[in-house]
């Protein structure tokens, strides 16, 4: 869609296309280099001075080494566990809370909504959060990676806006037919909201998979490190990945890149689904927030 009536001339259009293409390359090239280097064999990596943009003899050697047990295997298991349990609980609590707030004028919904909105405007701060988690006895527990981020107020507001947009006549007629709140929620509201629930679930999943702050603050036992902290140790701080951890003599570069790919890949897989919906979700939130 061109916003204006008269289209721009050819030079201007070419310039625009060029600028945006360069922007895209700046994003794509690093990802390409990371993935290719993780797949390339040792000779090519050495010959190319550390990085390749296209693997000549792609092999999964680096991945086999990472998943043969040891630090990375365990970290992936922790991250997957946190993501699955966390997303399930988050989605359940978010849906219930959004539904509880989706009947304007219902008892108590106004103050609860205000509490929710104000929680968006400020964050409690690092030390108070740490002390709270400590008081609850959750330090070094996997729950510390889930409970503090269980509810994202913005997601609740987006979902509530979606629920408010459902045809109210449908809910009223169900009520007249004698359906209780829970029946309405599970039999009418949720089936109609599959799309928004899927998207918000994916947002939570990405957040849990990426979570770093909670792990840094609350987890000190490195047996319990999720993938993000392991990535920090081996890829950002360049600790050497010992042969005891991988059982193979591979270039560090390939192992580091493979580790990066392991943390990027799940996000790349869900990205198309996210992308289809998020612009819409954000707009609902912006209009009705």
């Amino acid at each position: 869609m061109s916003a204006s009536v008269t289209p721009a001339g050819v030079p201007v259009r070419t310039a625009k296309g060029f600028v945006l293409t360069v922007c895209c390359l700046l994003v794509i090239l690093p990802f390409l280099a990371v993935i290719s280097t993780s797949l390339a064999d040792q000779q090519q990596v050495t010959a190319a001075g550390g990085y390749v943009l296209w693997p000549e003899n792609p092999s999964l050697e680096a991945y086999r080494a990472l998943f043969s047990g040891g630090v990375v295997t365990r970290a992936v298991a922790v991250s997957v566990g946190i993501t699955v349990v966390g997303t399930t609980l988050s989605l359940a609590c978010t849906t219930l809370l959004a539904y509880g707030l989706s009947r304007p004028g219902s008892y108590g919904s106004k103050p609860i909504l205000m509490l929710l909105l104000f929680s968006l405007l400020f964050t409690p701060g690092i030390i108070p959060m740490y002390l709270t988690v400590k008081q609850l006895g959750l330090l070094d527990s996997y729950w510390s990676l889930i409970l503090p981020t269980l509810i994202n107020a913005f997601n609740v507001i987006v979902m509530r806006a979606f629920f408010l947009d459902l045809p109210q006549e449908l809910l009223d007629s169900a009520k007249i037919d004698g359906a209780g709140e829970l029946t309405i929620l599970t039999r009418i509201v949720m089936p109609l909201s599959k799309a928004i629930m899927a998207v918000i679930g994916l947002f939570y999943a990405v957040a849990y998979w990426n979570s770093f702050f909670s792990a840094l603050l609350y987890i000190t036992d490195n047996e319990k490190y999720p993938l993000s902290l392991v990535l920090r140790t081996y890829v950002v701080n360049n600790a050497t990945i010992g042969s005891g951890d991988t059982g193979a003599a591979l270039p560090q570069q390939s192992l580091q890149m493979a580790m990066l790919v392991v943390s990027i890949l799940p996000i790349l897989c869900v990205y198309p689904f996210l992308q289809k919906h998020f612009a819409k979700g954000i707009m609902i939130g912006a209009v009705k927030g």
């Binding site: 609590c93 219930l96 809370l97 539904y99 509880g100 707030l101 919904s109 609860i112 609740v156 709140e181």
Partner: peptide, 8 residues
């Protein structure tokens, strides 16, 4: 409805 909102 309130009970639904409670955990969150």
């Amino acid at each position: 409805l309130l009970a639904c909102a409670l955990p969150g």
